[in-house]
């Protein structure tokens, strides 16, 4: 049977070899990371964004690159998922986009700091994470229904996917905070949809739906799109 000194040799040699390999791999990683992570795009504003991200421990609720806490949404791709205006709205007034839902901290960022955080997310969005986060592979929502092409994924206005799906669902995809939008075009006229989106409270006083940061073009595009989503 193995002696104690042989066991010690096994321990020392094994540890040394693995540690040495780990150091070599680390050197190689340090060399390659700048390219894979677009280090040339880390501007001063992105650096400030990272600093704010750390100083406020956003990672204590959110994940970024899948790391952090599991209380709030994963933010690596939030820039393409929600867009500039949505992120700014959340960071200015966290109740603005998901009123009455799970709470985020109310921050008081300056304009420069808001830019920095948005730029930080724009940067993380572009980093090559070897395929993370994964595409939902059981998602069957690409089917086109009777309403024709209009409701198919590719033709939805981008702003619809970014803002509306956060709370509403269409064809089974999206949130369940507000009512489903399936068939909304049969229930409402385009003009009513337009007015509703422009300021929900003016139409229905006790509405939970926030006034979204939408431009005039957004309003026109969305109301046209939704008016075509028939039963």
């Amino acid at each position: 049977m193995l002696s104690k000194s042989a066991a010690r040799t096994f321990f020392l040699v094994g540890t040394f070899v693995c540690f040495f390999a780990f150091i070599l791999l680390t050197l190689d990683t340090v060399r390659r990371v700048p390219k894979q992570t677009n280090a040339d795009q880390i501007t001063d504003s992105v650096k400030l964004g990272k600093k704010l991200w750390e100083d406020n421990n956003c990672m204590g609720c959110h994940t970024l690159y899948g790391e952090g806490a599991y209380y709030a949404p994963e933010l690596t791709k939030v820039y393409s998922r929600r867009g500039d205006a949505f992120i700014r709205a959340m960071l200015t007034d966290p109740e603005s986009m998901y009123p009455g839902e799970r709470k985020m901290v109310q921050y008081h960022f300056t304009d420069e700091e808001l830019d920095a955080l948005v730029n930080f997310f724009k940067y993380t969005d572009g980093v090559d994470l070897n395929g993370f986060p994964p595409e939902p592979d059981l998602n069957t929502n690409t089917v086109v229904d009777e309403s024709g092409e209009v409701a198919a994924i590719g033709t939805r206005p981008k702003v619809f996917n970014q803002m509306c799906l956060a709370c509403h669902a269409l064809q089974g995809q999206g949130g369940a905070i507000g009512p489903s939008l399936d068939g909304v075009g049969s229930r409402m006229e385009r003009k009513d949809i337009y007015n509703w989106l422009k300021d929900p409270i003016s139409v229905k006083k006790d509405s939970m739906m926030p006034k979204l940061p939408l431009s005039d073009e957004d309003l026109t595009e969305l109301s046209t799109f939704l008016s075509l989503v028939k039963e």
């Binding site: 949404p73 994963e74 839902e101 799970r102 986060p133 059981l138 998602n139 995809q173 949130g175 369940a176």
Partner: peptide, 13 residues
């Protein structure tokens, strides 16, 4: 969330 693509908060509920 990851396989069906449901929204984060909806899944949390």
């Amino acid at each position: 969330e990851r396989k069906m693509g449901m929204d984060f908060l909806t899944v949390q509920k």
